[in-house]
Nucleic acid binder design. Structure first.
Lengths: 161, 161
DNA sequence: CGGAGGTAGCTGCGCGAAGCAGCCACTTCC
DNA sequence: GGAAGTGGCTGCTTCGCGCAGCTACCTCCG
């Protein structure tokens, strides 16, 4: 068994942000998943609650846009949240296409509880980074993410400023 | 339509590395996937070729360990690489459980070509970061990833020496 | 020498996440 | 009032990841 050294990752992969990010994501998904499982939640549920808490009552379509969740999943997730008593879903009298989703008191409580649990996950995640770098790390992730989400610009962009 | 502002991500999510990483991963997967599709490859194929190039001929199990790929997928991927003439798969005379996978000349060429394509992806990915921060960013990703992969150590580990 | 336990290759299945297509109801714009 | 767009909903597909289980084979140890 020359098993030692057998698990060394090729330098070519280790040096690529794309590989690191996707690998990291599966670990993070696992970690977060465990935290949510313990609470009987899914990731999407938390995202929806967070959006409702920050922006107030909203239509399901708006929630999906804000949380980057497909409408089909919003339907299901809001239904589950409603069944759990964490949100209310009522038809919008002003626009009868819409349902207005509202955070309940209990929803607020669960959001806070889950946020605390998730904070622990974040600490675990950024543990190897010196405290001074963590904020920067988060900032960098955000910038990279924003950039990738921008509509692809194929031509030149010489005249930005 | 108060569609403007409708797509603002809740601050609670934006501030969590876990959310950022998973969101980023889906964008990266899409980006890398496009690059590989154009070449008729999958991500796994590239990882295997990279491992073979760096560490030389190896068994399929060793390849899986190095690239963090499940054995079941290694079987399939190596089969496809063999069919494409990029690797050779031969039984190991010294250990008849194993297949020894070897990179062919053509495999080497394709690896180099894909690496070039991927380099462009990395540039696109880290574009929003100042050049000085990119290396640090990669380094941080690596450290965080290593940390999450370590077997969960609940106690102390003082006597590694 | 022979059994126990571990490893390699392979097949198969399940899960989570993401995304698209199509339908109907309704609103808004022209 | 007709066309176009939006919101809610159902259904389906894809992809990446990971585990369970099987057989063949090697190695270790009594």
């Amino acid at each position: 068994m020359q098993n030692m050294g057998d698990d060394r990752v090729p330098a070519l992969l280790r040096s690529q942000p794309s590989w690191l990010v996707t690998q990291l994501a599966t670990q993070v998904t696992r970690l977060v998943g465990e935290a949510f499982d313990a609470a009987g939640f899914r990731r999407y549920h938390y995202a929806l609650l967070a959006a409702l808490d920050e922006f107030g009552p909203a239509s399901q379509a708006a929630l999906g846009r804000r949380c980057r969740i497909d409408r089909s999943y919003v339907v299901e997730a809001v239904g589950e949240l409603e069944a759990a008593g964490l949100v209310l879903r009522a038809p919008d009298p002003a626009d009868r296409r819409r349902n207005v989703v509202t955070l309940t008191g209990e929803g607020h409580i669960h959001l806070a509880a889950m946020t605390r649990t998730l904070d622990d996950v974040q600490d675990e995640l950024t543990a190897p980074l010196p405290a001074a770098e963590r904020e920067q790390f988060v900032h960098q992730l955000g910038r990279v993410l924003d950039h990738l989400r921008e509509p692809r610009v194929t031509g030149k962009d010489p005249a930005i400023s």
